[in-house]
Design a binder for these strands. Sequence first.
DNA 1: CATGTATACTGTACGCCGTACAGAGATTCT
DNA 2: AGAATCTCTGTACGGCGTACAGTATACATG
Lengths: 257, 257
Amino acid sequence: MASNRSSAGDPAHTLALLWGVPLAPTAGRRGPRKAHSPAEIAAVAIRTADAEGLDAVTMRRVAQELGLSPMALYTYVPGKAELLDLMLDTLYAAMPRSTPADQGWRARATAVADDNRALYAAHPWTAAVPTTRPPLGPGLMAKYEYELRALEGTGLDDVRLDAALTHLLGFVQTCARTAADERAAQQDSAMNDEQWWEANADLLARVLDPARYPVATRVGAAAGQAQGGAYNADHAYEFGLPRVLDGLAALIEQTSR
Amino acid sequence: MASNRSSAGDPAHTLALLWGVPLAPTAGRRGPRKAHSPAEIAAVAIRTADAEGLDAVTMRRVAQELGLSPMALYTYVPGKAELLDLMLDTLYAAMPRSTPADQGWRARATAVADDNRALYAAHPWTAAVPTTRPPLGPGLMAKYEYELRALEGTGLDDVRLDAALTHLLGFVQTCARTAADERAAQQDSAMNDEQWWEANADLLARVLDPARYPVATRVGAAAGQAQGGAYNADHAYEFGLPRVLDGLAALIEQTSR
DNA sequence: CATGTATACTGTACGCCGTACAGAGATTCT
DNA sequence: AGAATCTCTGTACGGCGTACAGTATACATG
């Protein structure tokens, strides 16, 4: 996985791109018309990433897909970081936002987690993009608004509301990254996790003294057998989500008391 | 951040390297003696990563640091993935393992989390290395053994014990990745988080209709003000660790009942 | 002691990336 | 008509992991 970063450039250009607000006056523009729209570019790039992974999304490749020379893409997008921003914000904008408000916060939080998980499942490459400086476009804003509302009415103050949401989404992202890492490792080692795990277990048995690591060997064997590998993202999600919600529940209860 | 992956190659070679077990018979070896040890190579690579980040750790650079030509490094290490494995396992081996057993699982789990956090703080680049297929060397084994013991005696069965530990460590890693991403973004945008948020907030105010995103604007402003961007990762840890522990507590209580 | 061979090591080369830069062609203003 | 401004193309650079071929070294065997 190459070095992909979002929001690395000038905020003014990035926001102009995401919100579709031209920086220069659009009337009386000289020179040839643009042949493509940001939405089209995002769609093409997303399709490529979905089909062949984020590594396949190069400036050259996206340009080619649009029938452009590599450098022409830079007239549409300041750089690769902004292209990634655009891709992410486009996906955020298309996420479902239909959770009923009348089922209690726990059901709503579960829906938020599941929706995010579905996004990562449909577009695994999104898990690898750092989001400490997220693409502040209409998609992210709508997502953030919706997800905050899901956790509103729990009695948490605004700062804790944000922290609780971040905590929940961070958990989902961790699971998604684990899943994406698994997939990537499988791809470039030509072994799936179970095969890798088994091969290593056999070899480890020759060099490792079980008496030195009694708990590790016991638990490792049990866990490995249970989930067919060292780690399993689906299991981690199913185990972890109730834990995260219980943890938030304790905070909510303690706050409302 | 470049494409760094651990454990991509042949498990037999990787394990031989990590455990110091030569694959070929060591007696009567022809040709020149090796001039360096795996431990020395790991130390040099770790020092470089600490000082200049994981991107600075290239095969060329590590070789140069050892006084070797780039390709000579491949006689010590099968490839870059295995070099990373070696670096990680070396750090794992050096982690503190001194938590008293008599203070309750919550104190022990907190110590485990804090120790991992300290590792990420001392070596931020470790947060970026995927560990779904961890380096199965003596360092990781000792770490795993120690951390499992910290959570033993909680009444959880072996599979859940492993899941609980994974859950806890995943949380710590998420915080560390956030911190590392922040640092990287700061480096290559020449703006710290506070400056970046402020610049974007001003620009957003011109394109965004607050009436469309009332909760987002309110909570976003409160959260942004409260944590000033830069303290994000620390804040997330301090908020999140009690949540994670409460979540595990609920499971433990429910299991022991 | 001479010679063969396994090993450590060097130098060169390849394909790939993001993107800086210079110039060509198209379109609309004055 | 000509200038200005835009889209778009082609070339080039430095850096990455590492494949491959060749050289120097030190031991095993005769």
